[in-house]
Computed example of a mutant assay.
Amino acid sequence: MGDSLTAGYGLAEGEGFVPQLQQWLAANGSDATVVNAGVSGDTTAGGLARLDWSLTPETDALIVTLGGNDLLRGLDPAVTRSNLEAILTKADARKLPVLLIGLPGPANFGPDWKAQFDAIYPELAAKHGTLLAPNFMAGLGGDDPAAARRLMQADGIHPNPEGVKRIVADLGPKVLELLARVQP
């Protein structure tokens, strides 16, 4: 469940996060099926609004990659937290294991806003006992901004196919850990 980063915005079919994750899992011995519940432009409020019909009875686990559009719009971190909290509470009620994938907040909204936003993911993961990947983009290698830019589409927001490949390689082990939590 996510936004354009999950949906594969700007990429050809098969190059986005979900199909590349599906391929990575198969190559690493998993027969899990990954369903793309990403909607470009979605906020945490949008994800919450569609959660009930997105979680079919066949759903065994949930990956949540929401919050990027909240941060791009500078939404109140308390609203983002509340929406993510509600999503995790609904997953808890269904006894679904969850991998919560965050993004670091930008500094341009001020240090207080950033501190509040950055606290959301680790605090909610701890409260709900979910797995946590603090930064969806970590696989791009934040130590070298020039190298990371080469892994992005022209908009500077969405990864290109090679960027997605690196993100999947970084997040794949966490997804395997999530799958290990699925109850038979």
Rank of each mutant, 00 (worst) to 15 (best):
G47V: 06
G47M: 09
A49K: 15
R50T: 11
R50I: 09
R50Y: 10
L51H: 08
D52V: 10
W53M: 12
W53P: 09
S54A: 14
S54E: 14
S54M: 14
L55R: 01
L55M: 06
T56I: 01
T56F: 01
P57A: 10
E58D: 14
E58T: 09
T59P: 05
T59E: 04
A61S: 09
A61K: 09
A61I: 05
L62F: 06
L62I: 05
I63L: 14
I63H: 07
V64A: 03
V64K: 03
T65P: 00
L66T: 10
G67N: 01
G68W: 02
G68Q: 02
N69A: 08
N69W: 04
N69K: 05
D70S: 09
D70K: 05
L71Y: 02
L71S: 12
L71M: 14
L72S: 05
R73F: 00
G74Q: 02
G74C: 08
G74D: 07
L75N: 10
D76H: 01
A78G: 07
A78K: 08
A78P: 00
T80G: 06
T80W: 02
N83K: 04
E85F: 07
E85M: 04
A86M: 10
A86N: 14
I87S: 08
I87K: 12
L88F: 05
T89V: 03
T89Y: 00
K90P: 02
K90S: 13
A91V: 09
D92R: 15
R94W: 04
R94P: 02
R94L: 13
R94K: 15
R94T: 01
L96D: 02
L96M: 02
L96Q: 02
P97S: 11
P97M: 11
V98T: 08
V98I: 06
L99H: 04
L100V: 10
I101T: 13
G102I: 07
L103P: 01
L103G: 06
L103D: 00
L103I: 15
L103N: 07
P106W: 02
P106S: 11
P106G: 13
A107K: 15
A107W: 11
F109A: 11
P111F: 12
P111Q: 15
D112G: 13
W113Q: 10
W113H: 15
K114L: 08
A115V: 07
Q116F: 01
Q116I: 01
F117T: 03
F117Y: 11
D118Q: 12
A119F: 12
A119R: 14
I120K: 11
I120L: 11
Y121H: 06
P122F: 14
P122K: 12
P122M: 07
P122N: 12
E123M: 10
E123W: 05
L124Q: 02
L124C: 06
A125M: 08
A125P: 05
A125H: 03
A126K: 11
A126I: 00
A126C: 00
K127S: 08
K127T: 13
K127P: 04
